[in-house]
């Protein structure tokens, strides 16, 4: 494979998530997984991308009004950006703590909301950025290196 000097964008696509609708929760992640699989990325790269995307998607469905997932494939990395319009996170440090959760009973019955989501996202990302504004929404940016 030729050595790439720049990390140029080779693929970009956006997906929309509807908040509160658990019937479709996970559909974006399933699509992204199948796109990455078709592009023949190594299975552990596909797995990491799918997991971070899925946990983020569940968060948007659980807490926000709506959200968008921007998938960007560069020569060296895959970036998954998830931006939602929702209540925002008052205390990010607290939210990142394993076990901390503000989930409703409904979310818990779905098998989520045990305070593991953001922690999982961080641990499966090679780089992770989170920012949030109260009353506006939250942005997550996960980067997965193609060469693990």
């Amino acid at each position: 494979m030729p050595v790439q000097e720049t990390n140029h964008i080779s693929y970009q696509r956006s997906f929309y998530i509807e908040g509160g609708n658990f019937n479709y929760a996970g559909i974006v992640s399933t699509s992204i997984k199948s796109i990455l699989k078709q592009m023949d990325f190594p299975s552990n790269v596909v797995r990491k991308c799918s997991i971070v995307c899925y946990e983020s998607e569940i968060n948007v469905v659980s807490y926000a009004r709506k959200g968008v997932v921007n998938l960007t494939i560069n020569s060296n990395t895959i970036q998954i950006e998830v931006i939602d319009e929702g209540p925002g996170i008052p205390n990010i440090d607290l939210a990142m703590q394993e076990g901390y959760s503000t989930a409703t009973q409904k979310i818990r019955e779905m098998g989520f909301g045990a305070g593991m989501g953001l922690h999982n996202i961080e641990s499966y990302s090679d780089a992770f950025i989170i920012s949030s504004e109260l009353g506006k929404g939250t942005r997550l940016l996960m980067t997965i290196n193609i060469k693990q």
């Binding site: 929760a25 996970g26 559909i27 992640s29 399933t30 799918s50 899925y54 098998g111």
Partner: peptide, 8 residues
């Protein structure tokens, strides 16, 4: 979500 998780 169980099916989606299994797929992922």
């Amino acid at each position: 979500q169980v099916i989606r998780t299994a797929d992922i």
